[in-house]
Write a protein that binds this DNA or RNA. Structure first.
Lengths: 158, 158
DNA sequence: TTATGTGCAAATTCTTTGCAGCGTG
DNA sequence: CACGCTGCAAAGAATTTGCACATAA
């Protein structure tokens, strides 16, 4: 939420360009287009969803480029890759505040939450083990309120 | 650690047999052999490691059977499947107490820890969202003390 | 100009499945 | 003796890669 409301320079662009250049890489149209589409998506899209969204606007961009660009975004630190119960990766823009996830194993819904107590406990644990923490991920699995009401059952596993 | 020290009846056997029977399934030699080898392994083996360990002793057991038996163990609740940074699943015997993981992104080492504060915070958060929690997983990523000392660098991502 | 990036399709990797025969209950 | 389980190999799903052409710097 920073300033003008339409067609402003997106906040990901400068750090991305800087990162690419710092690597001796090239700022290309496909990279910027994939990034633009990705950052416009909601939620926690998998590659498939990103590819479809990209190809809706630029049909000639191949899926390999989407994969490669998502890796680039992850390396740049602007995006995080996660794997929830599914066997594919999902991607998520990195915001300023760290958040974790509630994963509904019944309907697949993913909600975010933030908890300072957990963040602090993590630092404490990492310290206790002489660990230099670079990140963490935590998921609470179960059934969301709606599925509980409907008595849907979880799919399997923990 | 329960009692006599050699060739005692392993603790996984009865619950596994009960589970299989409760499902109308059959207690077969391959299933018991895969289970025996699996529960004899240390750490957080992937399927590949389990297959190799199994085939060292029973070369005629196929990998499909290992996959199928691991799923059976997960369904029975005796084993949990996890995915860390890698793109394959790792399996871990379920103990009485819940523990979480410190994952070293430099050398791949995985350490376990347990923290009542985190367990409790999770319950509190699940409650706050009307979530019926069935489980959770949490990983702290970073560099372990040894890698920090050696100044090894993490591989990528979060 | 020249190395890096792209698009396509084929290759890899991990996992699941079809099927004929085997063995438990 | 019926139905579930096994082993094999082939199929599938997600992701990576080789290569010839395109293009940023």
């Amino acid at each position: 939420m920073s300033g003008r409301s339409r067609k402003e320079v997106p906040s990901w662009r400068e750090p991305l360009v800087d990162y690419i250049r710092s690597r001796g890489g090239r700022v290309t149209a496909p990279r910027l287009r994939v990034a633009e589409v990705f950052f416009g998506l909601q939620g926690h899209p998998g590659v498939e969803e990103v590819v479809q969204a990209v190809q809706r606007r630029w049909p000639q961009i191949g899926q390999a480029t989407v994969y490669r660009t998502l890796h680039l975004l992850v390396d740049s630190g602007l995006v995080e890759a996660r794997q929830f119960g599914d066997r594919f990766s999902r991607y998520e823009a990195v915001g300023s505040e760290h958040h974790d996830h509630l994963v509904c194993d019944c309907c697949g819904a993913i909600r975010e939450f933030e908890d300072p107590g957990i963040e602090e406990a993590q630092r404490r644990i990492a310290d206790a083990f002489g660990f230099r923490m670079t990140g963490h991920r935590m998921e609470i699995h179960g059934c969301c309120a709606r599925c509980v009401a409907r008595q849907t059952r979880p799919r399997s596993g923990a």
